[in-house]
Nucleic acid binder design. Structure first.
Ligand SMILES: [Mn+2]
Ligand SMILES: [Mn+2]
Ligand SMILES: [Mn+2]
Ligand SMILES: [Mn+2]
Lengths: 220, 220
DNA sequence: TTTTAATTTTAGATAAATCTAAAAAAAATT
DNA sequence: AATTTTTTTTAGATTTATCTAAAATTAAAA
């Protein structure tokens, strides 16, 4: 259907739009895909011809309904494969992203539906990201950035917004993994370092580390 | 490492050489890959440059040790994914080949080793083909073509040499699946039709159907 | 051993995805 | 408002894998 490359462009446009909520710029795409602005312009014309994006020269792009639905299917595949790799093949959460980047392009609908069933219809991937259902619907995420909470709040880690292996390994070493409950015991006034209590252990983390942690304050 | 396309050429050369035990001809490769002889020649030059094949103009090709080992790794991936699709995702043996054609190109060694472990180190794929181990060694296949046996022989179906969905569906309808035990009750002298007894049921199959069935006569 | 047929290779084109360098447009500064 | 900077687009090449048509080589038949 769509080439490997086209799929990667759609996915990147989807993610960038989610963050910025503004038409996505050529340079931003080039940055994410490690390519040049000129190459991006070429591909944008192609995707516009295929009615996958709305593209006006110099104005950035948004996904059409068709483009959005395609992007979501790719994200669904990516996240389901990540669950498979962690739950069934016992990979660490820091090892699976790159493998899933390849597996996500194996496009045969029944494969994904059966994989989903085999995995027990998981709601979230190993990084806490929501997995869209087969019709492309996401559950509504009830989540807050750890940095937004005041002192003396209790929260449960439900996700991370940074998927690099060094970062995830670091969190794991600190014991800050998904599902863990924590209490913000203090926020240092000088540099904002967070003093946490997690599973009875005192941990202090910088704002740089904390900024990518998503938590839930529901169910205490 | 190697492109999708290069991997497919290596796999095809490996398979053709196994059948013919002679240097593989340009046209034969073109036939298997649904491409043109001229395209094959181009690719053969490239593979020869990469020391994956031994290529002399007009003389056909053989795989180098490196090419052979690469081809075997791809076959290993293909067959392990087929086992996964049948055993874990409950696909039929006639549905998995095309999906495995895509999955086999996801090349990350630890993925395949963990998949192998997860599947319990299977020896054969759903079509009875042997799965090479991680060092590329095949078990020795003790198998005979069903057409080579005389009347009144008992045998067990251990594989098929034709993987198309219509053929496999046909066998399944007849109850001729892997592991089934059968008795050759007669061979019609006029057109060679085989009269089989399989699981108490009398079945007659043409030579065209029988020619792709592999059996074992060991263990009765 | 010619002649014919089949196979394989070259020559030259094309399509997809990329690039660099230069031009054009938009945004930010003075 | 004019100038500078940033961003984006075009123009023109390059790389990879493919193709058709014609030439070269090998194999088969007469
Ligand atoms: Mn990921
Ligand atoms: Mn993820
Ligand atoms: Mn197969
Ligand atoms: Mn198989």
């Amino acid at each position: 259907m769509h080439s490997f490359t086209e799929e990667n462009y759609l996915k990147v446009i989807f993610h960038l739009f989610q963050v910025q909520k503004m038409p996505v710029q050529t340079n931003a795409i080039a940055g994410k895909l490690n390519t040049r602005a000129a190459s991006v312009t070429d591909m944008l014309k192609k995707l516009a011809d295929k009615k996958l994006i709305n593209y006006i020269r110099y104005q950035g792009v948004t996904l059409t309904e068709q483009g959005k639905s395609t992007a979501i299917q790719i994200i669904r595949r990516h996240r389901l494969w990540e669950v498979f790799l962690v739950e069934k093949l016992n990979f660490g959460w820091d090892e699976v992203h790159d493998i899933a980047e390849e597996l996500e392009h194996v496009g045969y609908q029944p494969l994904i539906e059966r994989l989903d069933k085999f995995l027990g219809y998981p709601k979230r991937d190993p990084h806490g990201d929501l997995i869209p259902d087969s019709s492309g619907e996401f559950e509504i995420a009830v989540q807050t950035g750890l940095l937004e909470l005041p002192e003396n709040t209790r929260a449960i880690i439900i996700g991370v917004t940074e998927h690099s292996s060094p970062y995830l390994k670091h969190l794991e070493k600190l014991g800050l993994t998904i599902g863990e409950s924590l209490l913000i015991e203090g926020i240092t006034s000088y540099d904002g370092t967070l003093e946490l209590n997690c599973a009875g252990k005192k941990i202090s983390i910088s704002r740089k580390v904390a900024q990518h942690i998503l938590v839930s304050t529901k169910n205490q």
